[in-house]
Structures are given as C-alpha cells and as structure tokens.
C-alpha cells in the first residue's frame, strides 16, 4: 500500500487497515444493533458499574489490548491464545458487566 500517494507518509499496511476496519465495523454494528433492538439504557453489572452497550464495547477493546500486551510481554508470539482469551473476555463483558 506504499508508494507515492499523498497517504504514503501514513505507511498503511493491510493488517493495520484491517484492524481499523474492524473497529469501524464494530461501531457500525453497534449502531445497527441499537436501531434494530434498542437497549442502550445503562445496566448494573457485576463490577457494580452502570454500563451501556457502548461502554461494554470500550471495556472489551481496552481489556483486549491489555491481554495482547501482557501476552506479548510475558510469552511472545504467536497470538492465537490471547485472541481466544480476548474473545472470551469480550463475551463475558457483554454478558455480565
């Protein structure tokens, strides 16, 4: 994706583009979900916090980032195991937090 385009300085790669596309898709998905099945009112979860769906997405993404960093710092590559942990963690956050 590099070259002489005006965006060359941003040094885009397919994996990073896919990462940001995933984030955008998450946001679009959340919007569609909210339109089709409104439920955005805060809910009191097991952490004692009142969270909306958007809050739970944020907690999932932030927590997942730390799961990946911890794995990289303590274990290293490959990253399939932290990916599974992050998906399970996100599921748990959306279910119980």
């Amino acid at each position: 994706m590099q070259g002489t385009s005006v965006f060359a300085w941003m040094a885009w790669t397919w994996p990073t583009a896919a990462f940001f596309a995933f984030i955008v898709l998450c946001l679009v998905g959340m919007t569609v979900w909210e339109f089709r099945s409104p439920g955005g009112a805060p809910r009191h979860g097991i952490l004692g916090l009142d969270t909306t769906r958007g809050d739970r997405l944020f907690i999932s993404l932030l927590g997942s980032a730390f799961i990946f960093l911890a794995w990289l710092g303590l274990v290293g590559t490959p990253l399939w195991a932290p990916l599974v942990i992050a998906v399970l963690y996100a599921g748990a956050v959306f279910r119980w937090v």
Partner: peptide, 25 residues
C-alpha cells in the same frame, strides 16, 4: 499513523518494512 509505524521498520523517503509485533515485544 502511529499504529502503522508500530508494526514496521522505518527508513527515510517513506520506506517501510513490515516487522509485525516485534517492536511491542
């Protein structure tokens, strides 16, 4: 841009080479 830089080796003149998560490790 920072995310893009974090997974590549950078040289002058907009030359970049993929390095994966090596810098994070």
């Amino acid at each position: 841009t920072v995310v893009n830089y974090s997974v590549q080796e950078s040289f002058g003149s907009n030359m970049f080479f993929w390095s994966g998560v090596r810098w994070f490790e």
